[in-house]
Design a protein around this nucleic acid. Structure first.
Lengths: 125, 125
DNA sequence: CTAATTGCAAACAGTTTGCAGGCGT
DNA sequence: ACGCCTGCAAACTGTTTGCAATTAG
């Protein structure tokens, strides 16, 4: 079910996604898109995001107990920093997993996810 | 707001939690507790779980895109292995975070979470 | 024109909360 | 008996879906 038409709301959403410097939540994406298209509804944002994940353009970023964020699926392997004060999520380049990792007998690892939690530069006291 | 009374539903929930061999979801805890107290409601389970987390007895274990699970808060620092075939979560002893970790300027880390994903011994090909 | 796309509101799923009655202490 | 605790249902939050109106091609 590929997208067939280019609408002003979809272009607004694509612009927001194209300009984001950190993973955004559906709510944040809606707010940004409303600047361009004030009447845009949340359902349209969710439909666009689901389409883009299905197309392999976006990936979800899950932070414990919070609504998912979205980021480009084309970034290299990396992890995330979650600010516990402002709730923003930032990208951290490089792999943070221990090098000489040794799993118990019989386990086979395919992927891994790492989230660091703390304060971002804007939220330090 | 500490707990003050010992009820049969609370004892049933405590028994389920005391016997669990892996992190359980609220739904699973409800089902187990219903065996002892069939009339128990989901609200009671949620209230008990929230109390226990607040008291520092339980911790939540979040697996991307799945309902939260609960584990004892008294286990040492550890991480989790999520089997993508049977969906069980296993404890991995020790810390798996890279040692000489260096954060971007201005970031301060308080905690970190690591989840390895793959196949457990029972689910290998 | 014609049907894909949207906005709205209703439907959902998971979690929480208000309240009247039940039950520990 | 007092008042904490429970079950129920209603309220909430985040997300999906049905449908009529809008609008891209």
């Amino acid at each position: 079910m590929p997208r067939q038409r280019s609408t002003k709301q979809r272009r607004a959403i694509d612009a927001v996604l194209g300009n984001m410097t950190r993973p955004l939540s559906p709510q944040e994406i809606l707010e940004q898109a409303k600047i361009e298209v004030p009447a845009i509804g949340m359902a349209t944002v969710y439909r666009a995001l689901n389409d883009l994940v299905e197309e392999g353009v976006l990936k979800t970023v899950d932070v414990a107990g919070q609504p998912p964020r979205y980021e480009s699926a084309h970034l290299g392997h990396h992890h995330h920093f979650h600010c516990t004060r402002c709730d923003k999520v930032f990208e951290l380049e490089g792999c943070l997993l221990k090098q000489d990792l040794q799993l118990p007998e019989g386990f086979f690892m395919e992927h891994h996810e790492i989230t660091l939690n703390g304060h971002c530069p804007d939220c330090k006291d």
